[in-house]
Design a protein around this nucleic acid. Structure first.
Lengths: 341, 341
DNA sequence: ATCAACCGCCAAAGCGCTTTGAACACTATA
DNA sequence: TATAGTGTTCAAAGCGCTTTGGCGGTTGAT
């Protein structure tokens, strides 16, 4: 059932039916009621594509996923983040269009999406220290919100970010307060902006305490359980092993814990661990005393906020960049304790 | 730059330009070359919405995500599965439309997607034992492929599934072969079809060995680390604790391992564990001897296959259901060993 | 009585593309 | 020389919707 049929059936013009359904004021209340009634009984749904074509609005928001060997989707936060954003999309009638880069250039994909009018805006995830995407999107006039920031970006843009630097500084301060002096950092890929900031926070805390950061205690890679495990094994086998470790994600922290326990040590007594926790739905670190002491910031919430800002911008047509800084919660769990003698 | 402008610039009709670009034979080779050249230099992209409207094809495939408290997105396999599917979508020019159910009824969403012509087909994830979606989709004439099966479905449909029953039967047989007699099962939600099948396989192996399945050794819930942990703690505290446990997912298996180690036991010696492993990119269970003995089946691969089947069906307009059964690999790791005396 | 203002509705144009049916200019066939 | 066929192009219709610009009819002010 399409508009033509519906209006024929009602003996009204398409114009009036369309207006009645879209809440325009110039329709008699009685007529509107009659139209709405009919639409309901016939289960009429305006064809999205036709409407899009007529209005110029796609009513869709894009998320672009880089090629197979890149890191976004493989990142466990993806699911929660997108669920948070999706909630808002659903409420406001937007669809989420996931595009996979495949063989093409990532930047071309954005141009394509824009050129074809497939989406009204995009969310940019996993920004790097230097990230062409931001300039490019600005250039082609696409609306977007970045989850995270890009330090070397020269143009203004909207973002939602956690205060990574402060969070990791605080985590490190806490360990120093417990008497730890040799502290390891198991970080994410430092081409990614957030990882870079985390290291800055980590180093800042060390320096404040008069401790010189040691390169062999700081590693950077994709944050898998295996990576956490292997790095910890290596650190523990070194001549002067750390007494505490700061970890950048829960999966990696699982690996760290395993390595510690395999070495016959007890986490929270022999070695302290603080991890960042994205509050993922299937990797909860909660309870009265969580397993891990952690800096916690919800990926779900970040997704929601990105969506909120983007939708607001699309609606208001206003382009003033908006920034939202989230502070991580610091929760104390069973994985930390005073430095051993 | 749109078709009208491009053809005006070339001094050709829209018809010819459109045909040239879409590879129709009735275009002079010289003209075609000229058109393609111009399209390239002007960066012409046909507007997707207009094309969709004209052809009736959306060139998009839908994945529907249930409400916030349901389990699909929170399921860690989601990311890998969708990455596998997305790869194929990209290669064939399809977009992936993620729809969030939000306040609405899930079934209405499918009708809506179809009515509005937003997608050409959908992938159904996490089928339940009895799942209305399959009948409904068939009824409204939407193309779809199910990841998994729905035991009580009355209509034929295409699916890709792992042989869950056989995988868990084999895992259990292996443990029995090692001398274990009291074996626990930490399963997913048994309203979900796959979980049900897994239990069937588990019980079948026990019965073959003359062991009566005990209800208190079989649990079912959403598969989080916490669930794995708490259930194992409870099982170990029971009067007659199991000597082996079969677990339905890696995150839960982490919880199991933690509980075992916290109890001062050694996994693979005091208690054996076999888990199912979806071969997730950020939770690898690999290496020469993996940490866990596991039944392994790639979520990424399953996504790819679902996409492949759906795309083939959309192209051929053929509707004959296709089935693809995947057999899980059985890998022996460090988490299993002979039953203790 | 006249004019303006408004209400409620409609016909038609237009969004950017594909596709139908026809036209035109040749060439091969009878 | 007439006819059919072939290769290449085009004008126009149509996909299903929104939106512009009226158009009659009623109302209130002048």
């Amino acid at each position: 059932m399409n508009l033509k049929q519906l209006s024929a059936h009602l003996g009204l013009s398409q114009t009036t039916v369309s207006r009645a359904l879209n809440g325009y004021p110039e329709v008699n209340a009685v007529t509107r009621e009659r139209v709405e009634q009919a639409a309901r009984t016939f289960g009429y749904q305006p064809n999205r594509r036709a409407r899009s074509l007529a209005t110029g609005q796609a009513m869709a928001i894009g998320h672009v996923i880089p090629g197979r060997f890149q890191h976004e989707l493989h990142n466990p936060i993806f699911g929660d983040f997108i669920a948070g954003a999706g909630q808002l999309y659903a409420d406001h009638g937007y669809d989420l269009m996931l595009t996979f880069v495949g063989q093409r250039q990532e930047l071309d994909v954005y141009r394509e999406l824009h050129g074809r009018g497939a989406v009204d805006g995009v969310i940019v995830q996993g920004p790097r220290m230097t990230d062409e995407r931001i300039e490019r999107l600005t250039e082609i006039g696409m609306r977007f919100v970045v989850h995270g920031r890009s330090t070397n970006s020269s143009v203004p843009y909207s973002w939602v970010d956690m205060n990574n630097e402060r969070a990791f500084e605080r985590a490190t301060e806490y360990l120093i307060g417990l008497g730890h002096r040799r502290i390891g950092l198991i970080n994410g890929l430092e081409t990614l902006d957030f990882a870079h900031r985390r290291r800055r926070g980590f180093c800042a805390a060390l320096k404040t305490a008069g401790i010189t950061p040691e390169p062999e205690l700081m590693t950077s890679a994709e944050m898998t359980e295996t990576y956490g495990y292997e790095t910890t094994v290596r650190m523990l086998a070194a001549p002067k092993p750390p007494t505490a470790i700061v970890v950048s994600s829960m999966p990696a922290a699982f690996g760290v814990r395993l390595a510690i326990e395999n070495a016959g040590l007890v986490m929270g007594r022999d070695i302290s661990v603080v991890t960042h926790d994205d509050d993922l739905s299937y990797l909860r670190n909660d309870g009265d005393t969580p397993a891990f002491t952690a800096t916690r910031s919800s990926a779900h919430e970040a997704g929601r906020m990105c969506a909120e800002i983007l939708i607001a911008q699309l609606r208001s047509k206003q382009t003033e960049p908006v920034h939202k800084m989230l502070e991580a919660e610091f929760v104390i769990g069973r994985s930390t304790g005073p430095a051993p003698e």
